[in-house]
Design a protein around this nucleic acid. Sequence first.
DNA 1: TATGAATGAGCGTTCATTCAT
DNA 2: GATGAATGAACGCTCATTCAT
Lengths: 210, 210, 210, 210
Amino acid sequence: MANLTERCREFAASAMKDGIGQAALEVLQERGYEALTIDRVADRAGISKGCVYNYFRNKQELIQYVFERIVEPAEQEAQQILARSCGAMEKLESLVRMWFGYFSSHRGLFDFLFRDPVVRQLCYESQRKKDAQALDDFGRVLAQGVSEGVFRCRNCGAVAEMIIGAIQFVIERQLELGEQRPAEQEAERILDVFLQGMAANPRERVEVQQ
Amino acid sequence: MANLTERCREFAASAMKDGIGQAALEVLQERGYEALTIDRVADRAGISKGCVYNYFRNKQELIQYVFERIVEPAEQEAQQILARSCGAMEKLESLVRMWFGYFSSHRGLFDFLFRDPVVRQLCYESQRKKDAQALDDFGRVLAQGVSEGVFRCRNCGAVAEMIIGAIQFVIERQLELGEQRPAEQEAERILDVFLQGMAANPRERVEVQQ
Amino acid sequence: MANLTERCREFAASAMKDGIGQAALEVLQERGYEALTIDRVADRAGISKGCVYNYFRNKQELIQYVFERIVEPAEQEAQQILARSCGAMEKLESLVRMWFGYFSSHRGLFDFLFRDPVVRQLCYESQRKKDAQALDDFGRVLAQGVSEGVFRCRNCGAVAEMIIGAIQFVIERQLELGEQRPAEQEAERILDVFLQGMAANPRERVEVQQ
Amino acid sequence: MANLTERCREFAASAMKDGIGQAALEVLQERGYEALTIDRVADRAGISKGCVYNYFRNKQELIQYVFERIVEPAEQEAQQILARSCGAMEKLESLVRMWFGYFSSHRGLFDFLFRDPVVRQLCYESQRKKDAQALDDFGRVLAQGVSEGVFRCRNCGAVAEMIIGAIQFVIERQLELGEQRPAEQEAERILDVFLQGMAANPRERVEVQQ
DNA sequence: TATGAATGAGCGTTCATTCAT
DNA sequence: GATGAATGAACGCTCATTCAT
C-alpha cells in the first residue's frame, strides 16, 4: 500500500487535476468551447502550458476529465432519481429541477455536453453507446409514466428531446441576457407547459390526440 | 442620390456579397462551422481569397452577413404569417411548421445560427436591432393567443424559448442520428406536446395551474 | 493551355519551391537532419514559416521534394552509366567517380539519403521497393563484372555495401576535417583499394580465395 | 589526497554515472536516438529525472559519457590488439573482427557513434584528445603493415576510413534488413575484399598502381 | 542527495489578414 | 477591382532544464 508521501502526492496531483479541470470549466463557461485552448486553461489555472501535460496526456483527456468530473455527478443524481420507487410524475419533476438547477449554475456546460462533437464521441464511448444518457433518462421516465397512465406521449424519445432542448435553450437565453430568475420557478414553468400544454381549452387537445 | 454608374456599382457589389455569402452557406452546410475558412469560401465562390476582403471587412462581418441572409427569408415568411388576420393557434402552427421545415432543409444551420459563439455574439447586435427576431415572433403569437383566450401562458417569452429550443434540438438529433422523418409529422408532434401537454389527466393540470 | 500569366506564375512557384528546397538543402548540409526544421528552412530562404506551406503541404513533402530534386539527378546519371554498352570495370569507375563527385559537393546528403528513416521510407515508396537504388546499381555492375570475368566477388550485394559505405565515410571525414582533396584522386584511391586490395602479395589473395 | 569519505562518495557517484549511462545505452539500442529523452533514461535507470542532472550537467554531457563508455571496452581491446607483438595482417584481421562483432551485438550504436550530429561534434573534442581512436588504430596497423611490406597503401588514414565506413554500412544494412548473418563470416568477407580486391586479374592492379 | 512538478522554448501546422501587382 | 503570395499569431504538443521540498 502507498506510504504517506505517496498518498500525499496523489492527493496533490488530484487537486491539480481538479484545478486544471476547474480552469477548463471556467474557460468553457466564459468563452465557449472554441476558446478552450490549452494555453488559456493553463493561464486560467495560473500554471504553464507544459504543466497541463503533466496531468493530462492530451486535450482530449482533459475534456474527458471535465466531462466525467463535472457532468457525471449530475448523471449519477439522475440515475438515483430514476431508481426511486415513486411515480413517473415525481421523477420527471425531479429530473427537470435537477438538470435545470445544475446547468443554471454551470453556464456553457449544456453546449459542451450535448453539442461538441468531441465530447459527444467521448460520451458515446464512455457510455458504451447506451444513447446519450440524459435523453435516455428522460425517455425512460416518460415511458414509465405512459405505462402508469399519467403521461400520454406516443413517442417518448421525441418528447425527451423536446424537454431537453427546451431546458437548454431557456437556460442559455437567461444566461445570455444576464437575467437571474430563480431556477426553481423556471423549472416549474417548463413542467407546467410540458405537462398541461398551452392550450386554454382542454377539449382541443383531445381532438388533436385522436 | 447616387448616379447611374454608382447604382450599377452598388448592384454589382451586392451581387458579389450574395455570391460569397451563398458560398459560405454551402461550405457551412456541407462541412460544418469548423471548416468555414476564408480559403474554402473563396474557392467555393470561384474567386480569390483576397477578393472576399473587398466585400467583407473580416470573417466576422461575413458570418454576420450570412446570418442575416439565412434568417431573412424565414423571417420574412414569419412576418407574413404574423401579419395574417387569423387566430393565434393557426399562426403558431404555421410558424412551427415553417421553422421546422426551414431548418430541416438546411442541415447544420441551426447550430450555426444559435450555437456558435461568434455568431451568437453577432446575433446579439443583429437581434437587438431586429428585436430578437424568431423569439419575438413566437412571443407575439403567443401573446395574441392569450388575449384571444386560446393560450394560457403566463410568460410568453419564456414559452417561445421552449418552443424554439425544442424545435432546434429535435432537428439536430434527427440530423445527428441520420434519421429523416417527415418534417410535417415532427412539427405536428411538437405542436401537440406544447398545446396539450403530456399529462394524461387534465385535472392535474388545473391543480398545477393554481 | 495555360496563358502567359499562368505560365509565369507557375514558373515563379517552381522557383520558390526550388529556393525553399535549396534552403532546406543548405540547412541539411550545415546543421544536419535533426536541425532541419521548417522555421530554419524558412529563415534560410528568407521567407516566413507559413509561406513554406504555400509550396509544400507538409514537412514530408518538402523532404520528398529535396530528395527527388537533389538526389534523383544523380540516380539518373547512374542509370545512364549502367545503360552504357561497356565493360563493368568502366562502369564501376564511372559510378564511383560520379557518386564521389556528387556527394563531395553536397555535404550531408549522403546521410540524408542513406540514413534518415523518413527519407528511407520515401525512397522505398517512390522507388517501389526496388531496393535502395544506389546499392542496386553497384550490385548490378559488380554482377556484370563477375560474368565478364573481371570481378571475383562472391556476394555482389555485400561488396556494393562496402563500396558505398567507404565512399560515404571517406567523404564525410574529409568534409568534417575541412580537407578539400580533389574528388577525382579520392575516387581513384577507393577504386584502387577495392579493385586490387591492400595486400602487397597477390599470392596471399589466392590462398584466402580458396 | 581525498580522505575515505570522499573516495567513497566518488565511488558512489561513479556507480550512478555508470548506471545512468547504461540506461541511456539501453534506450539507445532499443528505441534509437530520437527516443533518447532524459525522462526515458531516468525511467530506465529507476531514478528521477532531476537526479540525472546531479551527475550530468546536461544531455550533451550524458551523451558524451555514453559515447566514451561505449567505445572504451572496444577501444581497450583494440589497444591490446595493437600492443601484440605480431604482424600487421594478423592485427588487422583481429581489429576488423573485433569491431564487427562489437557493433553486431550493439544494434544502433554505430549510428549513434559515428552519425549523430551532436555526438559527432562531441566526438571531435573527445577524439582530438584521443587522437581519433578507431581511425587512428586502423591507420597505425596499416602503417605497420606497409613497413612490414605486407600492405601497399599509399595513404593509410584514407584506407582506414574506407574500412570503417564499409564495416559500419554493412552492419547497418544487415540490421535494417533484419538479416542476421554470422559476424565472423562477414568480417572475413570484408577482409577478403580489402586485402585482395575484387579485380579478377592481378595484372590490372599493377597497371592502376603505376 | 533525490525528487518530480513546473517551466518555456521549440516543434509542425493552420488560417485570418494584408498588400504589391 | 481582383489576385494570391506572404505574413505571423495561434494551435496542440514535446522535452531539456530548473528548483523548492
